[in-house]
């Protein structure tokens, strides 16, 4: 499933510079070093963190997209960095668990 396919399925676009990217699996976490050590390439990464370091971690861990749960917003300067670094960021109004369940339904 492509990242852009999430848009008609309850997920909202924050920025999608690389929306054609395929999602393979899901990782959840807010401690960035933990995420960087364990998220796999092409995962959709669900988090509630929205600071600038999230973009660096998504770049380096090479995740397919960042999904901000709980309706968390992305600050404008962080969004600008995401666009520069080709990082897809979406948001979900649902809590983390329900967001993950929804993704699971869509991916399986």
């Amino acid at each position: 499933m492509k990242v852009s396919d999430l848009l008609n399925n309850g997920f909202l676009e924050i920025t999608l510079p690389d929306g054609d990217r395929e999602i393979d699996g899901v990782y959840i976490g807010d401690l960035l070093s933990w995420v960087m050590g364990r998220a796999s390439q092409d995962n959709a990464w669900i988090t509630i963190m929205s600071n600038i370091n999230v973009i660096a971690v998504a770049t380096l861990a090479d995740t397919a997209c960042v999904i901000l749960a709980e309706d968390v917003d992305l600050p404008e300067d962080v969004k600008a960095q995401a666009e520069i670094k080709d990082i897809n960021v979406l948001k979900s109004p649902l809590p983390i668990y329900e967001t993950a369940v929804r993704l699971h339904e869509l991916l399986s």
């Binding site: 401690l31 960035l32 070093s33 933990w34 050590g37 600071n51 370091n53």
Partner: peptide, 8 residues
């Protein structure tokens, strides 16, 4: 900021 997990 999301760091300091002792994973570095």
């Amino acid at each position: 900021l999301g760091f300091g997990a002792g994973m570095g």
